[in-house]
Design a protein around this nucleic acid. Sequence first.
DNA 1: TCTTTTGATCACATAAAGTGATGAAAATTT
DNA 2: AAATTTTCATCACTTTATGTGATCAAAAGA
Lengths: 301, 301
Amino acid sequence: MYLPTLKQLNYLITLHEQQHFAKAAEACFVSQSTLSAGIIELEKLLGAQLVERTKRHVHFSELGERVVKEARVTLASVHKIGEMVEAEKEPLTGTLRLGVIPTIAPFLLPRIMPQLRMAFPKLTLQLTEGFSHIICDQLNRGELDLLLLALPFNCGPTTDYHLFNDPFHVAFTADKKPDMNEINTQDLKEENLLLMEDGHCLKDHALAACHLTPASGKVETMGTSLHTLVQMISGGMGVTLLPEMAMMGGILSGTNVATVPLGGQNPFREIGLSWRQSSPMADQYKIFGDKIIDIWSSLDS
Amino acid sequence: MYLPTLKQLNYLITLHEQQHFAKAAEACFVSQSTLSAGIIELEKLLGAQLVERTKRHVHFSELGERVVKEARVTLASVHKIGEMVEAEKEPLTGTLRLGVIPTIAPFLLPRIMPQLRMAFPKLTLQLTEGFSHIICDQLNRGELDLLLLALPFNCGPTTDYHLFNDPFHVAFTADKKPDMNEINTQDLKEENLLLMEDGHCLKDHALAACHLTPASGKVETMGTSLHTLVQMISGGMGVTLLPEMAMMGGILSGTNVATVPLGGQNPFREIGLSWRQSSPMADQYKIFGDKIIDIWSSLDS
DNA sequence: TCTTTTGATCACATAAAGTGATGAAAATTT
DNA sequence: AAATTTTCATCACTTTATGTGATCAAAAGA
């Protein structure tokens, strides 16, 4: 495949506009000899005469006219590339492919999206909801740019950015709720603890918050959504750990469930962002994360 | 205005296809270092990172994806230029802008166009009818490629190509037609000679065929078409010189006009082609002219 | 720990694009 | 007719861009 030079095409277009070699050369900020040689070179490459030269006039052949027309299309396309890049340099514009886990997405996003849109009006969010390990794979394959998830999660060569802590509450059937300001891991030993099934990192983080290992007895897991799990608690089937975020998102409305804050050390899950270490947009992602922190704390109060 | 290189854009596209520097380099028939440097150079020029490199994977940033997409458009456009030129190399294809004078066009074209189309099916004729000096100007301005006219005509720096001679006949009102095989210039001295007005070169060529100068008395000129002139003769207002081409084209049908061939030296006008001396298509125009000769002589017989 | 894979980098070679000066042909003025 | 002007091509030369193989460093995998 033989390629002309964009410079040559530009020379040709300018020559067509000026109908004069010396003037075209001036317009291109090169010497007349350069432009002349450029046009000759282009004609030689294409193997066809595009321009007829007389000592008095410059004429474009019928083919030359058509080549000029198409060359304009070519340069316009190149120009568009430049414009796209320039637009992108303004931070947080364009499209951000964001992966979010299912125990965050339905509770956090509806509450922060409006303000996020206002803060970054030129940013289009392309949301993907999935289990941590799924969206981590997508991140590492380059199909996503950024993840919003619960940390820690071993996601390969990523940079994690802490946003805020999301405290756990223990959810009881309303009539079984103990009258305490907070509840401790030890107090749960007699309860039937229901958690979400493998895949949801919420299970691991909940256990970690309780300083329990998966092997500790009396733990049942269920392959359902958090909403369904709450319904089970409401029906008296046991207790569970609920992220405050979900409660603030209204997961308890219309249920027969009451909650007590979890006590002890680190009774929360950590919410954060992850991106590939190699990402050139790290700065922008931090700004994005800071904005989420901002919005979140304003919701809390 | 800063221009990337088409090579660089091509490297980028290939890298996107191969997702691997070394393979992309191979596909571009360059060394890995060249392709690597090319991509880096492009990123530096644009001032933005398009590709994320890890030791294991190559990822395109969201911007990178869009740049690749637009770069494909660019290269397709360049490719189209190449195709246009290639198509043009096949002789007598594309568009030919042909200027024809009014004393040829209506008589010759209808009779030769069908066969011309058959001979050059890929050639589109863009016809312009006008006085010799008008279409000559257009030729010299590069607005026309080729002229079909009566020679000689001083048209500036053109190459003329003789096609055939078009004999003159003297047209009388039918009842005044002398009973002769041919008629001589001297025999016309008593007649009222009607010719076309300035602008039509037919006047000059008719006078030349008669070996007369415009000053020779008893010559009237009229600013009309040849058809109208024939009507005047039919009405008994004098005699005129008619090109045989017009008669064969049926100009006399339904009129009261009879003709006698003109005698003497060179009793004809010369039909030919003209193109700019500087035209790169001279060979093609000769082939085109030869075909007209061909068709014309087959009509004669 | 050793090997393999992979993209970046280095020193160097070649090719392309640039320059000012000059030349030749046509058009215009003297 | 001669001189001048206009205009594009060409020349010798410089600078810049693009290319190469060899080598390096980092990460992944054995």
